[in-house]
Amino acid sequence: MNFNRFTRRVLVLCALAGLALGGCSGDDAGSGEAASDGPKRVAVVVSTLNNPWFVVLAETARDRAAELGYEATIFDSQNDPAKESAHYDNIIASGYSAILFNPTDADGSVANVRRAADAGIPVFCMDREINATDVAVSQIISDNYSGAVAVGRYFVEAVGETGKYVELLGLVGDNNTWNRSTGFHSVVDRYEGLEMVAQQSADFDRARALEVLEAVLQANPDIDAVFAGNDAMAMGAYQALVAAGKADTVKVFGFDGADDVVRLIAEGKIAATAMQFPKVMARTAAESADRYVNGERDFQQKMPVAVELVTPANVGKYGDFGRRQE
């Protein structure tokens, strides 16, 4: 076949363009191959390790993966989507077999999961969901809404049908924040006598909750209760109330089932929390990843995990981030 020089150069340029395209998919395929041929490794990407609850989630996932024969590494995103994205870059380039993932942002984390999926690395979300149903293999998530409804019903029972309260929200980009808030308000807003005097985000952070509540108390010294979207914030709120001399009169309600809050419920210092089951979620995610690596493909996209109300009446049943018999 004869080509003139012009035609050859056009073909060369087109071939280069084709190589560029093919090169992209070649890299992706390479990661998938590395995942299947290399040592079996699982990445545990967690939103933050600055909260004992997430430490339990991450370490349980890591330990269960190790029991199943994987080399497991924890990556701390420090509640920073940019750090989370950098972790995904490393994980994809390193050819991990699976990712056990606790996202920083329901919308912002979707792109990371999609990149991993495109690279042939299955992702299993833990505790927090992402706003997409076609990228993660499965999402094992707390039934936050129902848990918050239970907290709301107990809140009305404990505080009464009249009073003033403060709500501390978690990260505003996290679906859990709004599922908890919506569930709580679906109950409490039905009682006109219950007035929310402040609703502010404290980013699921204990120190931030302390600061926020101290500021709120300046303007609203006569509150009756605080609903915190997680137990770290409940602890921060409780600290602020102790410092203000109001811990005995203001009821604090949390969410998570962290050990320090469960202990304070038993001591009568915090009113209630909602027990999530981080160990159940982490183990389920690790076991699902193992089944996926071994060929299973039939997974439910959403796997809600029940949340249980913990009050002084039943606190004896709970501890160590779950039911005592677990």
């Binding site: 329901a106 969901e129 706003n131 679906n175 959403k302 809600p304």
Partner: peptide, 9 residues
């Protein structure tokens, strides 16, 4: 079915 919806919200 929860799996038919984009989010639990």
């Amino acid at each position: 079915d929860v799996n038919d919806f984009a989010s639990t919200r």
